[in-house]
C-alpha cells in the first residue's frame, strides 16, 4: 500500500536500513485503536505523520516502542529485518529506535546527567549487563556539555531531575537533548512542537535537523508546519480512524496544514466512520 516516493536510498539497502511497519493492529484494553497501519521509513528520510486528534498517531509510536498497555493484535514491525515486536522496550532502544514523548515522565530525584549517562551507555553498548561500567563520568560530562552548548540548552539542565517540574517547553528541549545523545537509527518525534512558542518551535526544528545529520530516519508527528521547516518531509502520511489512508510528498503536508482534514474524511468514508466510532467509544469511557 505504501511506496514512499523517494530515491534517496537505493533499493539494495532497503531491507537492512529500514523501520518497516506492516499492517499493524493495536488494541488497548481490548479496544482496537490501530486498524492496519503500514509505512516504511528508510535511514536518512523524514516522514511526517499527520491526522486529527485521536486518529492513532501516538499509539503507533508507543506500539513501536513496546508500551505494555498497547497490545499488537496483528501485523509486524521490523528494524533492519529484525522483528522488533519480539524485543523488550529496552532492547528496542538498544537496537536503535527512539521516541520523543509528547508528555515525558518525571523521575524525581534522578539528575538528567545521571539518567542520560546510564541511557547513553546502554544504547552504545547494547550487550552491557546491569552493574557493568558506565561511560567514564569525565568523558560523558564533556560530551554532554558540548551537545547542550550546540543545542543552546542551559548547562544547569544537567543537574535538574528528569522532567521534574519542567515547563512544557523544557520537557521538549530535554527530549531533543536525549535524541542528540542517543543518536538512534530511527526516531519518532511525537508532537515535539506542542506547547512551544513560535521561536521555540523554530529552535527545535533547527536542532532536530542538526542532530540527525544525513543518517537518522525520522517520523515527525505534528500539527504544525513550523517543525517541518528545517525538516522537509520526503513522505507525508495521513492517519484517520486508526489507518494510514494517504501517503504523499511534502505537498500533502502543506495541503493539510492549509485546509485541514475535511477532504481526507470525504475521500475515505470508511476510515471517517471508524474515527466517529472510536470517538464514541472514548466518550462512553469518559462518562462511564
Amino acid at each position: 500500500m505504501i511506496a514512499p516516493n523517494t530515491n534517496r536510498t537505493n533499493e539494495s539497502m532497503s531491507n537492512t536500513e529500514t523501520l518497516k511497519i506492516t499492517d499493524l493492529h493495536v488494541a488497548v484494553e481490548g479496544k482496537p485503536i490501530l486498524c492496519g497501519a503500514s509505512l516504511t521509513l528508510r535511514r536518512g528520510e523524514t516522514h511526517a505523520l499527520m491526522g486529527p486528534n485521536g486518529s492513532g498517531k501516538s499509539t503507533l509510536g508507543l506500539a513501536v516502542m513496546g508500551h505494555p498497555a498497547y497490545e499488537v493484535t496483528s501485523g509486524s514491525v521490523e528494524l533492519d529485518g529484525v522483528d522488533l515486536l519480539e524485543l523488550d522496550p529496552d532492547e528496542r532502544a538498544r537496537a536503535g529506535v527512539f521516541m520523543a514523548f509528547q508528555r515525558p515522565m518525571a523521575i524525581p530525584g534522578v539528575k538528567m546527567a545521571d539518567f542520560l549517562r546510564h541511557a547513553t551507555t546502554n544504547v552504545r553498548q547494547p550487550d552491557r549487563k546491569e552493574g557493568e561500567e558506565l561511560i567514564p563520568m569525565r568523558e560523558f560530562r564533556k560530551e554532554l556539555r558540548g551537545k547542550m552548548e550546540q543545542l543552546k540548552i542551559d548547562p544547569e539542565f544537567a543537574r535538574r531531575y528528569v522532567n521534574d517540574g519542567f515547563s512544557g517547553g523544557e520537557m521538549k528541549r530535554a527530549e531533543i537533548l536525549q535524541l542528540a545523545m542517543l543518536q538512534p537509527k530511527f526516531a519518532i518525534l511525537d508532537e515535539t512542537d506542542s506547547g512551544l512558542d513560535a521561536d521555540a518551535v523554530k529552535l527545535a526544528s533547527a536542532s532536530i535537523a542538526e542532530i540527525r545529520g544525513g543518517e537518522m530516519g525520522i517520523l515527525i508527528i505534528t500539527h504544525h508546519e513550523r517543525l517541518l521547516e528545517h525538516n522537509r518531509p520526503d513522505v507525508t502520511h495521513v492517519m484517520l480512524g486508526g489507518r494510514i489512508v494517504e501517503t504523499g510528498g511534502p505537498e500533502l503536508a502543506e495541503e493539510l496544514h492549509r485546509d485541514g482534514f475535511d477532504r481526507v474524511r470525504a475521500d475515505h468514508p470508511k476510515a471517517a466512520a471508524q474515527e466517529a466510532e472510536l470517538e464514541k467509544l472514548q466518550k462512553e469511557e469518559a462518562v462511564g
Binding site: M65, G66, I107, A119, N122
Partner: peptide
C-alpha cells in the same frame, strides 16, 4: 516504560 525506552 519511559526509562526502558532509553535503553534501561
Amino acid at each position: 516504560f519511559y526509562c526502558r525506552t532509553r535503553g534501561m
